[in-house]
Amino acid sequence: MFIINCPYCGERDQQEFKAGGEAHIERPKQPTELSDDEWAEYLFMRKNIKGVQFERWNHAHGCRKWFNVARDTSNDEIKVVYKMGEKPPLE
């Protein structure tokens, strides 16, 4: 349980949000060209990092907007919140 700073609404309890999983997984540009291996990588394989991970969250019970979060999964500490389309912070 932790607090998330929604870039649109400010600090709210985590239970207002829906976790959207690993961020920056790009949808294949040419799906018909993809091999089965590449499909598996895109659909199923995840980094599932213990440490700082970039992930998507949705303020489901608030403004309903999507945004990105860099969170340390070993202690649930949020490092940075940044908007959809922005590049992940380098560190």
Binding site: Q14, K18, A19, N48, I49, K50, E55, T73, S74, D76
Partner: peptide
């Protein structure tokens, strides 16, 4: 389960 990844 919670819906987010966590090792805590």
């Amino acid at each position: 389960t919670d819906d987010y990844v966590s090792y805590t």
